[in-house]
């Protein structure tokens, strides 16, 4: 009885959403014999989702202003139930994500998976690595502590050393000549909106290309 009801409900949704086709196209795909090194792409995606979730949770208490940023994070760490866990995962997840994305890139390089027909997948992958580093750079400032403040001062000054346009880039990054409230709020905006949206978009294309061309096979001696 229940089985039949469930079947009917599923059939109704399937007719309208095409669940079965979706399942066949995305999940029930044939693949070359797997290798543990090939899991790093998914691990990057997992970390992206985890960073997204914990990041959203952090914004529940975090306040991006020089007066409150530091205190609000102290509060998350000591005043909020499991705040240490959420921030701890986000903090270490950032480091791990950079590492995993980089090793993933090395794997693709070593197995030469970037060659025909997957050139575009690689290109987008390099973009993903860059945006991930951008996330690390913008997120580093948000706690507004000594380390954050001075590292970002130096980091943005590096951008300022570019000939001719350096001064302009520096002011655009900092929202002024020095680090100030505008810097914090634009880094915050970049960290929670601009870069994640770019990241999500690029990941979408990256995944589409993987499904389109299939996962690359491990090269054999004659390859």
């Amino acid at each position: 009885m229940w089985k039949k009801l469930w079947k009917n409900i599923f059939a109704w949704f399937d007719e309208r959403l095409g669940l079965n086709d979706l399942y066949k196209a995305t999940l029930d795909r044939p693949e070359p014999k797997g290798n543990w090194w090939n899991t790093l792409g998914s691990a990057s995606l997992f970390l992206f989702v985890l960073q997204g979730l914990t990041g959203i949770f952090l914004t529940v208490y975090y306040t991006p202003s020089p007066d409150h940023a530091y205190d609000s994070i102290q509060y998350i760490m000591t005043g909020v139930e499991f705040g240490w866990l959420i921030r701890g995962i986000h903090h270490w997840g950032a480091s791990l994500m950079v590492m995993v994305v980089f090793i993933h890139m090395l794997r693709v390089f070593v197995t030469a998976s970037y060659k025909y027909p997957r050139e575009l997948t690689w290109l987008i992958g390099v973009g993903l690595l860059l945006v991930t580093l951008g996330m690390g750079f913008t997120g580093y400032l948000l706690p507004w502590n000594q380390k954050a403040f001075w590292a970002t001062t130096v980091g943005t000054a590096i951008a300022g050393s570019v000939p001719w346009v350096g001064e302009f880039i520096l002011k655009a990054l900092r929202g002024g000549t020095d680090l100030n409230a505008l810097t914090l709020s634009r880094f915050f905006s970049a960290h929670i909106w601009i870069l994640p949206v770019m990241l999500a978009g690029l990941i979408g294309v990256h995944l589409f290309l993987i499904i389109k061309h299939g996962e690359s096979a491990f090269p054999e001696k004659e390859d």
Binding site: L50, L53, T54, F57, E81, F82, L85, I89
Partner: peptide
């Protein structure tokens, strides 16, 4: 493991 602590985290002020 992430969901249960998150609920406590979100409703903390009510606790």
């Amino acid at each position: 493991a992430i969901g249960v602590p998150s609920i406590f985290y979100l409703v903390d002020p009510a606790l």
